Computed example of a mutant assay.
Amino acid sequence: MKGLWKEFKAFAMGGNMMDLALGFIIGAAFAALVESLAGNILMQLVAAIFGKPDFSNLSFSVNGAELKYGAFLTELLNFLLLGLVLFALVKAMKKLGLGNFRAQGSRECPFCKEFVPVDALKCKFCTADIDPEQVEDEDEHIVVSRTKHADG
């Protein structure tokens, strides 16, 4: 039992678990901040334009059932504004060189069928030039020069 407790303590206090916990806490705080920006500033701009901070009261009845499409529109608008804010923040942080925003995931090389990152320009197995599924800003000139050579 003592060995099991020691192993659990090593797991719980290990780097990966602490990193995960810190990431979760910071992520929750960041989500609250972005949600506040979307709800308290951007939705208030919508209220200034349309005269209402939300559309929750909009509804209609069908066979006695009330369809509250206004609540759905409000949530949809909140989601779109939140996504827009997050997209803008990530683009700004990427431009400033903050954080690690490399593409995640892998795909199959069309030549050797080995798995390579989605933003790979060259297969690390067969060394063939491949078109990336996601082009990073710093790699865009390589893809453009390839298409110029292929066309000309």
Score class of each variant (00 low, 15 high):
M1T: 10
L4S: 11
W5N: 09
E7V: 00
K9E: 09
K9Y: 08
N16K: 06
N16T: 02
M17P: 01
L20A: 14
A21K: 09
A21G: 14
G23I: 07
G23A: 10
G27N: 11
A29E: 12
F30S: 15
E35D: 14
S36G: 15
S36L: 13
I41M: 10
L42H: 02
L45F: 13
L45D: 01
V46M: 10
V46E: 07
A47F: 11
G51F: 10
G51K: 08
P53E: 05
S56A: 13
N57E: 15
V62L: 15
N63P: 00
A65H: 13
K68G: 02
G70T: 02
A71G: 11
F72E: 06
L73T: 02
L77V: 04
F79E: 01
F79Q: 01
A88P: 01
A88D: 03
A92E: 05
L96H: 04
G97H: 06
G99W: 12
F101C: 03
S106I: 00
C109R: 03
F115M: 10
V118A: 00
D119M: 01
K124D: 12
F125T: 07
E133I: 01
Q134T: 13
Q134C: 03
H141K: 09
H141A: 12
V144G: 00
S145A: 14
K148L: 09
H149G: 00
